[in-house]
Design a protein around this nucleic acid. Structure first.
Lengths: 309, 309
DNA sequence: TGGGCTGATATCTCTAGGCGTATGGAGCGC
DNA sequence: GCGCTCCATACGCCTAGAGATATCAGCCCA
């Protein structure tokens, strides 16, 4: 590709004149006087090396060379205008792509509302969402596989990571929710509205593997220990959906964030636990991520009315 | 289409930098120092309104906005370069289209050589050739249906026309050729090599209609009258091919330019006439036609070795 | 023959932008 | 800590080009 030394203004003038075929009118449309237009065309013709218009008294017409140049000039100008507009849209966060990881349990609670609100604010942004548990989200944020994560119990005081493990990550709490006990409907403890945690001491537990979300896992174990027992884990499952199904078959009980109440299985009961404790849901992102889309998503999460324009 | 105020040089710099992802190397490829390149990119980013590259120490990378702009910029630049090249080619006469009218009798003589020579000189020029007699060629030249005509006996002293009838036309003689008598082989006058024109006085004649080419027609009639008789016209035909066929059937004799000797019909003989007279073949074009292709064709006709480059 | 229209030319001004050299400052490796 | 690489910044110079106004030249029409 060689050095393309010709001002775009000349091309624009050329295209307009080719449409008007009248110097006065074309100049008016360009918002300039007629002599400058004559100059523009002249300069362009000098660069091309050949006349682009014939100026017979009375009528202006394209030459063969002009006819050849016209479509290319038009294409170049529209390509450029479109490209600029697209780049501006992406740059300002009005368009583009945002990859979001989310914990499966949120698919039924915060996620739908968030997606709806974001889409309303920025309809031209494509949202790629993928379900993943907490730990993989941290990894995915670090290696830039996702841009935003919606996860439970983020690591270390709302900020984590050092450069050795990748970019520094930030977290902000979106909501907190209480824990509930997950019991088979037929279980005696399912009868009252509330279950004291200590009563679950001898029950077998069904939980997510610790690797899926160490902090949440540790918090659950910690709650049990605070209640005076160490839970005996009978079975692991990677999704809350599965956990509930296993509870239904009588394999054990579980302790889970309240939002899994949305999982409706007829053989399973959810009961408030005593003493009550809450788990946090947070958004996480790369601290050095300058993408306006991330900012927009954070604003949406915060309930900011936003400025889509 | 809005006013596209951004210098192309910046776009070029952008594309090159996007390929190199290294300011120093890109600047070298552009043949400038590194600071100017930084400025170019900066100005472009200012106009776009957003960063196009991330400059982390060690590596330069495109931003999302930059990725959006890149293909459009590339397209615009190549479109423009191609369009300019095409316009220059057409403008300089290295490419384009030339419409040529020619008298049918020339299809066997000057035309093939001319086309071959022209095509060799300018292989990218498309030649649209169409057979037509003299008078229609004049009309077609005037209304710009053809650009060049190859015809017999052009009107009035190598130049003709006034503005009332359209553009002024020019003619240049390509070659002159003698007349021949067209006789049935069995005809007594076909026996000797040469025929005295006066001997044809009592023969019926087969000729083209006068409207096809008034000057040639008048010239033929004039020759006969100079030989002391007015030819009796038994039949008209619009093509020499047909004239020969009619002569073969014994419908009459004819007087024709020598080049129709190429029409080989076993029952027809061509004989040199006495006194000898010659007819002219000319190229015609619009005097105000500035097309370089016309000039090139004229040069080819004149046997000019030409300068295709 | 004299306006009216159309486009070209001449002249002047102003400024954006392109380039160079010199310099600054942040990582990175030894 | 030193030097190296790499990019940004600061300044100064210079030209191209865009714009305006004034004027001229050809053509058409009345």
């Amino acid at each position: 590709m060689e050095r393309p030394e010709l001002p775009l203004a000349q091309l624009h003038a050329f295209v307009v004149l080719a449409e008007e075929l009248h110097f006065g009118h074309a100049a008016a449309r360009l918002g300039i006087a007629q002599p400058p237009l004559s100059q523009q065309i002249r300069r362009l013709e000098d660069k091309v090396g050949h006349a682009l218009f014939t100026r017979e008294p009375g009528r202006v017409a394209l030459t063969a060379a002009g006819r050849e140049l016209l479509p290319a000039a038009r294409r170049a100008l529209t390509d450029l205008a479109d490209g600029l507009a697209a780049a501006r849209a992406v740059g300002s966060g009005r368009a583009g792509r945002l990859r979001i990881g989310f914990a499966a349990s949120l698919a039924l609670t915060v996620l739908p509302g968030l997606l709806r609100a974001f889409r309303e604010r920025l309809p031209d942004v494509r949202l790629d969402i993928r379900e993943m548990t907490t730990a993989p989200q941290i990894a995915a944020l670090r290696d830039k596989t996702i841009d935003v994560g919606l996860l439970r119990e983020p690591p270390a005081g709302d900020t984590a990571g050092d450069t050795a493990y990748g970019p520094e990550l930030c977290f902000r709490t979106v909501l907190t929710e209480p824990f509930v006990a997950v019991l088979p409907s037929a279980h005696p403890l399912a009868a009252p509205r509330t279950v004291r945690l200590a009563r679950l001491a001898d029950e077998p537990f069904v939980l997510l593997p610790r690797t899926a979300g160490p902090r949440l896992h540790d918090q659950i174990i910690g709650l049990c220990e605070a209640a005076g027992f160490t839970p005996r884990i009978a079975q692991r499952a990677v999704e809350w959906q599965t956990v509930c199904a296993l509870v239904e078959t009588g394999l054990g009980v579980s302790l889970a964030p309240a939002s899994i109440r949305r999982i409706r299985l007829k053989g399973v009961a959810f009961r408030t636990v005593e003493p009550n404790a809450r788990t946090r849901v947070a958004v996480g992102w790369r601290k050095d991520d300058r993408s306006p889309l991330v900012a927009q998503l954070l604003a949406t999460v915060s309930g900011d009315p936003g400025s889509a324009r």
